[in-house]
Design a protein around this nucleic acid. Structure first.
Lengths: 346, 346
DNA sequence: CCGCTTTTCCAAAGCGCTTTGAATATCCCA
DNA sequence: TGGGATATTCAAAGCGCTTTGGAAAAGCGG
């Protein structure tokens, strides 16, 4: 069913039917009712392609999902972020276009969004230090919002981010308060902006207490379960093992825990652990006390906020273009005073 | 840059330029070269919306991501499935359109794909017993492929699925061979088709050895970490605890393991565990012996296969429209003979 | 009842591409 | 050298919608 068919059916011109459906004032309320009813009855909806050709707007928002070319790894937080964003898109009549590309030719994906004109805006994921995609998007001229920030970047851009530095500073402080002095950092890849900020928070907390950060206690890499495990085994095998670990991902934390328990140690007693928790639906803590003490911030909520911001920008609304989310520090069972392990080994 | 501008630039008609770029034979090789070079130089790519309006093909494939309205849960395997499918789409010039909707009005999303004509085909996720979406899609007339199957459905449809029944039958058999007799099944929601088939495999293996399936050992629910944990605690607190658990998801298995170890028991010695492993990138086992004995089948690979099948169908190629993937049974550290626990409790 | 404004509707152009049908240029061989 | 076949190119229509500019209908005060 096309607009023409529907208008023939109603004995009206396509113009009138179009206006009636799009809520223009130049059509009487009576005919509008009639048109809307007929459209519903015959299941008419305008052909997206024709409409967006005529209007110049694609009514779609693009996401580029980079796949680590080396490790074929897909970031597990994407699913929840996209769930949040998608919710907002649906409510506002936008489609979500996903482009899955190896992370070494992401640029092409953005350019193609522009040349093919199939999206009106873009969400940029997983920004790195001085991310080259930001100047690229600025030259392309497509509205976009970054999920995260990019340190050392001059160019202006809109973003939604968690206060990663403060979160990890607070977490480290908390561990220090518990008496821990050797605290390991198990972080994401070091060119990732969130990892940089988390490290900054961690180092700031240590330095504030006069403890020089120990590079051998700091790890940066892919956040898989296996990495968490292997690394923990290595760290705890040292003559001077850390008494606490600060971890950047729930999935890595699970591996860390496995490593701890394989050694017959108990998390929260022998070794403390704080993890960042993106509040992924399938890892959500039950009603009782959380297993992991965590810096928690819902990535799904970030998705919603980023989507809303982007839509605002595309509609020219002059909203604040930065949203800083504060992570909760939620107390769980994985942390405890450092004394016991210190006593055990000392 | 539009086609017209490019053709003016070249002193050719839009027709010729279009044909040159689309590889039609009615254009001399010399001009084709010239056109292609100019297009590349000026960064010309046809406007998707105009092109698909003219051709009638959207060059996009739709996925509906249902969010459990009750639990706000997003299926963690989606990310990897989509990564696999997206890879194939990119290679073939298709876009991926995602529609995130609460799972109680999914139908509307499919209908809207049709009326808005913004996709050429659909991938159907997470089919249930006698899934109503299959007849719906058959009436809509859009090509589609189901990731999974739908038991008790008469209507024909194309699918890519894992042989869930055989996988769980083999896994159960393996546990039986190890001497286990009380084997718990921790399954997904019972209206999900994969859960039904896995249970069928589990029951078939038991029955074949004359062991009547015990309904109190069979659980069906959301596959979260917390559920796995809570359930395990309950099961192991029974006077007649199971000596082994067969679990439908890696994430649940992690919770199960937590439950086991909280009781001071050791997985693989005191309690055995086999899980289904979708080979998600961030849970991938390292090079050494896997932690979990598992029925393993890459969901990313399933995504690739489903995408290829759908594209074949859309192009009218008469390929086989069913692909049954066999899961590996990979031996890990989480399984062992039943004797010890039996000795301990008996 | 007339001339004016306001309301309501419509014809036609145009968005940027593909594709049909026709026109022109080129070729080959008698 | 001419005429038919073949290789190139092009003009124009059309995909289904929105939107400009205008026409017809209705309302209104004098």
């Amino acid at each position: 069913m096309t607009l023409k068919e529907l208008s023939d059916l109603l004995g009206l011109s396509p113009t009138t039917v179009s206006r009636a459906l799009n809520g223009y004032p130049e059509v009487s309320e009576a005919t509008r009712k009639r048109v809307v009813a007929a459209a519903r009855e015959h299941g008419y909806a305008p052909n997206t392609r024709a409409r967006s050709l005529a209007t110049g707007r694609a009514m779609a928002i693009g996401h580029v999902i980079p796949i680590s070319a080396k490790h074929e790894m897909v970031n597990p937080v994407f699913a929840d972020f996209i769930a949040g964003a998608g919710e907002v898109y649906s409510r506002n009549g936008y489609d979500m276009l996903l482009s899955v590309v190896p992370d070494d030719d992401e640029d092409a994906a953005y350019r193609s969004f522009l040349t093919k004109r199939n999206v009106d805006g873009i969400i940029l994921h997983a920004p790195t230090l001085n991310d080259p995609r930001i100047p690229l998007l600025n030259t392309l001229g497509l509205p976009y919002v970054v999920h995260g920030r990019s340190s050392d970047t001059d160019a202006p851009y809109s973003w939604v981010d968690v206060n990663n530095k403060r979160a990890f500073q607070r977490a480290t402080d908390f561990l220090l308060d518990l008496g821990h002095r050797r605290i390991a950092l198990v972080n994401g890849l070091e060119h990732m902006d969130f990892a940089i900020r988390r490290r900054a928070g961690y180092e700031a907390a240590l330095t504030a207490r006069g403890i020089p950060p120990d590079p051998t206690l700091m790890y940066a890499g892919e956040m898989t379960e296996a990495q968490g495990h292997d690394l923990t085994r290595k760290l705890l095998a040292r003559p001077d093992p850390p008494t606490a670990l600060l971890v950047s991902s729930m999935i890595t934390a699970i591996g860390v825990r496995r490593g701890i328990e394989e050694l017959g140690l108990t998390m929260g007693r022998d070794v403390s652990l704080i993890t960042h928790d993106d509040d992924l639906s399938y890892f959500r803590n039950g009603a009782d006390i959380p297993v992991y003490t965590a810096t928690r911030s819902s990535v799904r909520d970030a998705g919603r906020k980023a989507a809303e911001m982007l839509i605002d920008i595309m509609q020219g609304r002059d909203t604040p273009h930065h949203i800083m989310l504060e992570a909760d520090l939620t107390l769980g069972l994985s942390t405890g005073p450092a004394t016991r392990l210190a006593a055990g080994t000392g």
